[in-house]
Amino acid sequence: MEAYILHLSIMAGIYIILTVSLNLIIGYAGQVSLGHAAFFGLGAYVSALTSLNWGLPFPAALVLAMLFAGACGLGLGLPTLRLKEDYLAIVTLGFGVIVDLIMVNLTITGGPDGLVGIPAPVIFGLSFRPPVRYLALVLLTVGFTLLVVHRLVHSYHGRALRAIRDHEVTAQVMGVNTPAYKVMIFTLAAALAGAAGSLYAHYITFINPESFGLHTSILVLSMVILGGMGSLAGSVVGAMTLAVLPELLRRAQAYQDLIYGALLIVLLIWRPQGLLGGGKLSLKFLRKKE
C-alpha cells in the first residue's frame, strides 16, 4: 500500500511539472498547444538513450534532455508562433503526431517496443532506485520548477506575457517584443516538459511511444483547465487530481473516460475558469469594495 502511494506521488509530481509548463504557454501567454506530450517524450528518450548508449550520469542526461526538448520547442516556436489559435492548435497537434511517428519508426528508439533497462539515477554515488528517494528527487524538481515559474510570472515578464494573452496587438504597440516572448516561453515550457520526461524515463525504466501520444497531451491539457489557466496552485491541484482520480475510479475502469468527460463538462459549466483560476483578483476587488 505504501509503495502504491509512493508511486502515485511520484507520478503526480511528474504531472505537476508537465502541467505547470503547459500552463505557461496556455494560461500565461495565451497560446495553444496540443502537442505538449511530444516534449515530454523527447526528454524521456534523450535521457534514456544518453544513459543507455553513452553511459551518461543522470544529471547530465537530465540537462541534455532539457536542452534537446527546449531546442525542439525553439525550433517549433520560431516559424509557428505567428499563427493564432486554431492554426497553432493544428500545428502543435501535427508536431505531436510527427514526434510520435518518429519514435515508433526509428531503430535507435526501439520502435514500438521502446527502450528497456533505463538505469535508475545515481548522483554522487547515491542511488535513487528506492521510491522514497526518487520521490524526494521529483519533489526537488517540482519545487525548482514552481520557483522558477513563480518568479517569472510575478516579474514584469509575467506582466508582458499576460498582456500578450489579453491583447497581443496592444502589447506590441506598448513595446513588448511579442514574438520573442512567445518563442521564449515555448522554449522554456518545452525544456521543463523535457525534464519531466527524463524523470519519468529513469523512474519507470521502460518507455515506449504510447506514453507520449495525443492522449497524454490531452490529459495534461485537462489538468491545466481543471486547475485553472494562469494559476500555479491550480496546476498543482489539477495535476494531482487527475493523476489520482483514475486510481480511485479503477473499479469503474470501463467507464473511466466517460466519468472524466462528464466531470470536465460539469466543471466548465459550473466554473469555467477552473478550480483555482482567476479567483485572486476578483477576491481582492471585493474586499476593497466593502
Binding site: 514584469y156 494573452r165 506598448m174
Partner: peptide, 28 residues
C-alpha cells in the same frame, strides 16, 4: 484595448515595460 485580466495598476505598469531594462535572469 485594455488588458482586461489585469488590475488598473498592472495595466499602467505594463506601459512601463520598456522602462525596466533588466534581463530574464535578473527578473528571476
Amino acid at each position: 484595448q485594455l488588458f482586461g485580466g489585469m488590475s488598473v495598476l498592472e495595466n499602467v505598469l505594463t506601459g512601463r515595460h520598456l522602462g525596466l531594462p533588466v534581463g530574464p535572469l535578473a527578473a528571476l
